[in-house]
């Protein structure tokens, strides 16, 4: 089977913030698994796409969720008219044919599910398929990348120590204001002045993190606000609909955030 459908044709825009590209390249060269940490909307997924493009490898993305079972990752027998047929899961696909497997928000999955990646992430680099009675050795191109958001992690939802310690980690944060403004300009097509106002607004909401908001407005959110403005909405309305309303339902916090945003507007 060919993984060409998973190849990324055009370069996804990514603005490096530090040495994350070099880190990832080094990890890939050694085929070490990578863990991306950071709040939502700060560019983790975009970064993986960019790296897959840069390395010219196919990228298979799996969004983890609570009900995900090991079979959903590794594969299962399905019934077909001719009989039972084994179907590789996305992880097996990447292992067998060589690609980057990206498990998004890995902690959402149950801990017993995540242990299937253990044999892949140490020196063995194999994937045992117990049901299929097969051991799949990893393709030389295969690499595993996971992401997780320490922000809404809690004591009850955390990676097992034995999982954590297999990964090389790259920490993502919100970009510094000037960089963030240039990202907003690039992604939403607004002008510099508007982008700096949006960055200031973003900072106000991030100040509320832990004081009423679980997380501040992400770069992605600010880009959306910029795009709403470009589509013709007045700035205040755009900010209200793409930042204030989605981010919280608490009326006090909403009022406070709206007013704080007012203070950022010229």
């Amino acid at each position: 089977m060919n993984l060409d459908v998973f190849r990324i044709a055009a370069e996804p825009y990514y603005q490096p913030l530090g040495n994350e590209i070099a880190t990832f390249q080094a990890a890939y060269a050694e085929r070490l698994p990578v863990m991306l940490k950071g709040p939502t909307g700060c560019g983790k997924t975009r970064f993986v796409e960019h790296m897959a493009w840069r390395l010219g490898k196919p990228l298979i993305t799996v969004a983890a969720h609570e009900d995900m079972t090991a079979a959903d990752l590794a594969g299962r027998y399905l019934l077909e008219p001719s009989g039972t047929v084994w179907h590789d899961g996305p992880l097996t696909l990447a292992v067998r044919h060589g690609g980057i497997c990206y498990l998004d928000e890995i902690v959402e999955a149950r801990q017993d599910t995540t242990v299937v990646i253990h044999p892949l992430t140490d020196a063995r680099r194999i994937l045992p398929l117990e049901k299929h009675n097969e051991i799949v050795p990893a393709h030389p191109d295969f690499q595993l990348t996971i992401s997780y958001n320490p922000g809404y992690q809690s004591a009850v939802k955390d990676l097992k120590e034995s999982t954590k310690q297999r990964f090389v980690a790259i920490d993502f944060g919100y970009p510094p204001p000037s960089t963030e403004a240039s990202i907003i300009v690039r992604e939403s097509g607004t002008d510099d002045a508007l982008a700096s106002i949006l960055v200031a607004i973003g900072e106000r909401s991030r100040n509320l993190q832990g004081h009423g908001l679980d997380e501040g407005a992400s770069t992605r959110m600010l880009i959306h606000a910029g795009r709403m403005v470009r589509a013709g909405l007045p700035l205040e309305m755009a900010v209200q609909s793409s930042i204030v309303l989605p981010i919280t339902d608490n009326p006090d916090i909403r009022a406070a955030l709206s007013d704080a945003i007012q203070a950022c507007l010229p």
Binding site: R204, N207, L208, D252, A256, L257
Partner: peptide
């Protein structure tokens, strides 16, 4: 509550 959130948002310090 609102006041506290407002000031925190502005100055980044509760």
């Amino acid at each position: 509550l609102e006041l506290k959130a407002f000031v925190t948002a502005l100055w980044g310090r509760s």
